[in-house]
Design a protein around this nucleic acid. Sequence first.
DNA 1: ATAATTTATTGATTTCGATTAATAAGAAGC
DNA 2: GCTTCTTATTAATCGAAATCAATAAATTAT
Lengths: 191, 191
Amino acid sequence: MDKLKKILIDLIQLTEEEWDIIKEKLNRQEYTAKSTIIKEGRIADCIYFIEKGLLRTYYLRDGKEISTYFACDEQFITSYSSFISQTSSLEYLETIENSIVYSISFATMMELYKIASKFEKLGRLLAEKNYLCVIERTRKMQTLTAKQKYLDFIDSYNKKIVQRVPQHQIASYLGIAPESLSRVRKELSIS
Amino acid sequence: MDKLKKILIDLIQLTEEEWDIIKEKLNRQEYTAKSTIIKEGRIADCIYFIEKGLLRTYYLRDGKEISTYFACDEQFITSYSSFISQTSSLEYLETIENSIVYSISFATMMELYKIASKFEKLGRLLAEKNYLCVIERTRKMQTLTAKQKYLDFIDSYNKKIVQRVPQHQIASYLGIAPESLSRVRKELSIS
DNA sequence: ATAATTTATTGATTTCGATTAATAAGAAGC
DNA sequence: GCTTCTTATTAATCGAAATCAATAAATTAT
């Protein structure tokens, strides 16, 4: 929980008193690997801070899983569009590995927003960070070849993610077929 | 300017007093068609509310323009990543038609954020709206065929945008070659 | 109005990565 | 341990859209 505190101090200059408010609202949860936390069609009512573990979001396209996001230790994750719009989720949130998370509900966030503008700022910064992340991804998706996407992926993403996320999930995240990723990797290991 | 006032009342329940604060900070600007407002490499120091007109953002890829966003009357536009991160812009902002905009500088936004949490909320809502917009776009880019993208475009976007944005700019926005868009349109007009 | 430039159309060809299919390698379960 | 299921590799074929090339149509400038 201290990790989250540190991050919040960094991000919004949280005071001890403010931490005490937020601390009470956090809900610690443990999940085994491959647990589904948010299902498609349901509204994401929490945002999760990852104490430890590895999670992803994905959606189904013609029965196939398309991964949209990976996150591990000390990051936030949820079905963010569903969370902010409080409409039913198009995607699933699931653990890849055993994970420990702290959840904050949407209702709590709304309360916090009312309590202090600092929390509103937290909401803004989260949204902005997510925006920057997805806009970068969009651009890369549009301009890079399969090989370039993979090279970019391995050097921009957390080592833990690169090493522990199954290859076919990375492929779907990059918008390429698993067979294509396999070929790209083969090509790269030769040269 | 009244249009903006209405939108802000709607969005963040702006009071008359708050409007008076913000009103003073707005800068009215007129641009002729094809004026560049933000250049690649420069930091976007304003966000623009469009009173009237049509604008787009785009970037260059191998010398070719890739449009990333179109906006017209009563919408906000800027090089948003650059604006929120205050880092140099990867894209250009330019008018497609003669336009009248009201600009608010980054410094002003920061001031406003300090004045009242309501402005911080405005910042959050803008970021969230932009997030939702780009995440939807990303998904469509990844799952739809050229034809589906175009059909989706013409029925989700403002008529003004569909009718007045040059076809090759729409093509680049959809991530397809102008020749392909031409063929898609031909096919659609036959059936 | 006419020339120059930009934008759109059409056809031929190529290409990157998808799909299909089969096998191999790993991991999980009994 | 062996079986089953999942994941990854490899090869052959296919296809949607890109590219290349030429022309036509529409704007813009002179």
